[in-house]
Design a protein around this nucleic acid. Structure first.
Lengths: 154, 154
DNA sequence: ACGTACTGTTGGTGTCACGAACCAAAATAG
DNA sequence: CTATTTTGGTTCGTGACACCAACAGTACGT
């Protein structure tokens, strides 16, 4: 692992795999920093992002985030304490609950989302348009391949 | 952030930025899983990988990992307790120390490294050779751009 | 109605990361 | 050559995060 951190980056002699690893660390670092600026962890961001779309129960949320249910309980607890998220009762099922983003939560998530888009977009903007598109298609292919291969829930 | 987790992946409608985010989560997930199989966290893996090359002090290590020195103290503590790493005195400087990987540590790191290479390699192998090379060059360009833009230590 | 399966929570443990305070050695100033 | 400042590392306290095992209550099949 010559390529394990953004700074450890030797900017030379990188094969695809090392490159992918480095790149993942870079993206995560950016995400972490921008989320952090809004007082969010990457996990919290991820959760809010998931909930931005849908409104689901703890169980499903855990599934999507690939976390243990108990972990999600804590995650939601903290987010709820900050008023980013709410637990709402599911009518007709007294044991299940649904988690929803509050307006505040939505605001924060969109704020971070924008910041991420500009920052990563800026980075990607250094590639020529054709290169960019080719790159995008490759990324898409990798993701598609991964998700299909990994029999993923929801 | 439609694209926040490997499973949240909609496999469609992904632009470059969402794709990059998703991909970073996928890579991190793979790293986390494979490292975890050897009882390592991603951070530990990263540290060991860094030390595999060089032999440096706590300060530098913190710099490379982008962590606070105090965090690194704990990190090294735990790794040392597991016999993966050692603190050695620096001759001629009685306050500085150097951290080195033990044989055991090296063994583990290489083991994980191999696993990662095969797994990610397998993923990347689904791209045609020419696409793969183009992709690699783009990744390289992004990394290079990032590191230069971010005035990175060492 | 009984037992089983499911949803979510609790409690305990360990890792990770931070900041502030601190120590001791080293470098620098005067 | 002392006095001050800087530097390398550690300690301590705090909080987030994630896991596991155990639990409570609800839903459901038969």
């Amino acid at each position: 692992m010559t390529a394990s951190s953004p700074e450890g980056a030797k900017t030379s002699d990188l094969d695809l795999i090392d490159g992918l690893m480095q790149l993942s660390f870079i993206v995560q670092a950016i995400l972490g920093r921008l989320a952090g600026e809004q007082g969010l962890s990457v996990t919290q961001l991820r959760m809010l992002a998931v909930l931005d779309d849908r409104e689901i129960g703890m169980r499903q949320l855990a599934g999507i985030l690939e976390l243990e249910k108990s972990s999600v309980t804590g995650l939601v607890d903290r987010a709820e304490r900050r008023g980013l998220v709410r637990r709402i009762a599911v009518p007709g099922n007294r044991r299940a609950i649904h988690v929803t983003v509050t307006d505040a939560g939505r605001a924060v998530v969109h704020l971070v989302r924008e910041a991420v888009r500009t920052e990563i977009g800026q980075l990607a903007g250094t590639l020529s348009d054709s290169r960019q598109d080719s790159f995008r298609r490759s990324v898409e292919a990798l993701i598609r391949h991964y998700v299909t291969q990994h029999a993923i829930p929801l």
